[in-house]
Design a protein around this nucleic acid. Sequence first.
RNA 1: GCUGAGAUGGCGGAGUGGACAAUCGCAACAGUCUGUAAAACUGUCGCCCGACAGGGCUACCUAGGUUCGAAUCCUAGUCUCAGCA
Length: 396
Amino acid sequence: MRGFHFTETHHDPHSAARLGRITTPHGTIDTPAFVPVGTQATVKSLTPDDLHTLGVELFFVNTYHTYLRPNLDVIKTFGGLHAFMGWHGPIITDSGGFQVFSLARPKYKPLDRDEENATLVNISEDGVTFRSHWDGSEHYFTPETSMQYQWTLGSDIHIAFDECTTYPTTPEYARKAMDRTHRWLVRSIAEHARQAASIPNRPYQALYGAIQGSIYEALRKESAHYICSLDTDGIAIGGVSVGESKEEMRQVLDWVMPVLPAQKPRHLLGVGEIDDIFVLIEHGVDTFDCVQPTRIARMGRVYVLPGEGSQGFDIDITHVQYKQDTKPIDPQCSCYTCTHFSRAYLHHLFRVRELLGYRLASLHNLYYINSLVRAIRRSIADGSFLELKKQWLYNK
RNA sequence: GCUGAGAUGGCGGAGUGGACAAUCGCAACAGUCUGUAAAACUGUCGCCCGACAGGGCUACCUAGGUUCGAAUCCUAGUCUCAGCA
């Protein structure tokens, strides 16, 4: 026993949805589970206690960001992220692979008007040179260093360093990036083993390999087969939610998910809008992280049942129509925000940019999404998952 | 009452004869957001027509005037602020 394992506890007879439990040295995670993103060692505006109360069991942190600030030496003096940020439950860290995507194109606010420097990454076979978004300094990541960094962070689950391609991309480039990601995983596994053995009785930290292949069927299937053929603790699906349509994302899951072995946990990287959740769980995804609930919360968008004054699953509380609205965000929601405050108050907090607004909206959105996932787990248990899905997605 | 300064779009505040429907900031209105360069970013922001290009109308306190042409110069008036009575 490595101190990390996954058990499938129940399988939906009508779909690939399943219930499971991931055991880590810092606790267990009932799956399917939504994983909030705390890039810089904090889920913005929330405390670890808040997260526990919301039912969060796994915390997502970014290697790239914590490597830059505060830096790994600081975290090392605490013995890792758990003590540093006061979260003692399971942690999953991203490798920096997503920054190969996100820093690769000038989105807005490029640090340098110079075309040469407009992109902050430079990829080679050996690794990736990043230009810090803080100060422009150069930093070199390889599969090996990413593994070392994640061991230093002490997270319970590591993601192997991969190349998340931009969208759209050509089949040629997608193959090139995928093959490179595959070679990088072999290197990651070797370094992971070295790290595990480097200190006697070191608590085990799990490794997930990441599937790539953009939106190309042959590549996705090849990548899934290859990643699954290697010895990792779990499987991550990357390279989605990078600009493709929801239909394309669903197709990727159609191609990839049937290939994955039942005994390994599957993490879908970066997906988690309300309507996506049903789709990914239906495909057999166990954990999935997404910035959406917390990011849109800070922009004043809060989840609401479809039909509650919205076409989709959220409303913009900053809109004038809520200025005098005495109702809670969602009258049926029993989160702290909805049981204590009105839409008008939230509207006011956002209009005057008060910190409490960001916090209350984040609390609500995370409560909302966690409640939904909990309801989905119950529905899988009692066989009503597809009915619940229909109920939610038909209402839209 | 006298002397001086000033009145510009929702607000603050540029502009001081043509490049001005008027820089800029704020506010307002809307859009975007899926492994967080994100408490961010983008657009609109006098009225009307237009998908766009563009066109028409009304505007820089009020009323006259000078000029080919005025937010900008001149005259009178109204109001505001400061100092003095």
